[in-house]
Simulated assay, not measured.
Amino acid sequence: MIFLISGSSHTGKTVLAQKLLEKYKYPYLSIDHLKMGLIRSGQTTLTPEDDDKLTEYLWPIVREMIKTAIENNQNLIVEGCYIPYDFKNDFSEEYLESIEHVCLVFSENYIKNNYKEIIKHRNTIEKRMDYDYSKELMIRDNNKTFKECKKHGCEYILINKIYDIKWRLSSY
């Protein structure tokens, strides 16, 4: 089984991946780690701020890693914001049968009421570079993510009142 976890920054993708790792003992790939490895090694001139270009650059690599894992009957958790909303177009039905995807989305209401708490937990699993991710930018990013999820028929978890992610933790 391949678990894909996408969503905007700070929504808890890495925390959910860690929970799945602990429950199923499946390895997981942080697309951020791949991104930083390629940037730091000089394999690309892109920077961490080049989000759209990074998706175009990273997704073909990650997509083929997913196909290889499926072909070898291996389990894998992949998390990151560089999974395109139309990712299903890149896989045949045979591959899609082995892929579970969810996109984590904060509602505008949740962000307005919990912004300080969200920022407080941004380093729960990984230490993040200190940058200004304003409430307004977070709202904009999550609104865009929600719109794109609906447009492309992606499964999503809309976090509106409380942060309680239990996706697939009891399904397998």
Rank of each mutant, 00 (worst) to 15 (best):
residue 25 K to S: 12
residue 27 P to N: 11
residue 31 I to W: 03
residue 31 I to Y: 10
residue 33 H to G: 09
residue 37 G to N: 13
residue 38 L to H: 07
residue 38 L to Q: 04
residue 39 I to H: 05
residue 41 S to Q: 10
residue 41 S to C: 08
residue 44 T to N: 05
residue 48 P to W: 11
residue 51 D to C: 06
residue 53 K to I: 00
residue 55 T to E: 10
residue 57 Y to C: 02
residue 58 L to D: 00
residue 61 I to K: 06
residue 62 V to P: 01
residue 65 M to S: 15
residue 69 A to L: 05
residue 69 A to R: 01
residue 75 N to D: 15
residue 76 L to C: 02
residue 84 P to V: 04
residue 84 P to N: 01
residue 87 F to G: 00
residue 92 S to R: 05
residue 93 E to A: 12
residue 94 E to V: 06
residue 97 E to R: 10
residue 99 I to M: 06
residue 103 C to S: 04
residue 103 C to N: 01
residue 103 C to Y: 09
residue 104 L to A: 04
residue 105 V to K: 04
residue 106 F to Q: 00
residue 106 F to P: 03
residue 107 S to K: 01
residue 108 E to P: 08
residue 108 E to I: 07
residue 109 N to H: 13
residue 111 I to Q: 02
residue 114 N to H: 07
residue 115 Y to F: 07
residue 118 I to F: 04
residue 118 I to D: 12
residue 118 I to N: 05
residue 118 I to G: 10
residue 120 K to P: 12
residue 123 N to E: 02
residue 126 E to W: 15
residue 126 E to A: 11
residue 129 M to L: 15
residue 130 D to M: 09
residue 130 D to P: 13
residue 133 Y to R: 13
residue 135 K to D: 07
residue 136 E to M: 13
residue 138 M to N: 04
residue 141 D to P: 09
residue 142 N to K: 00
residue 144 K to C: 07
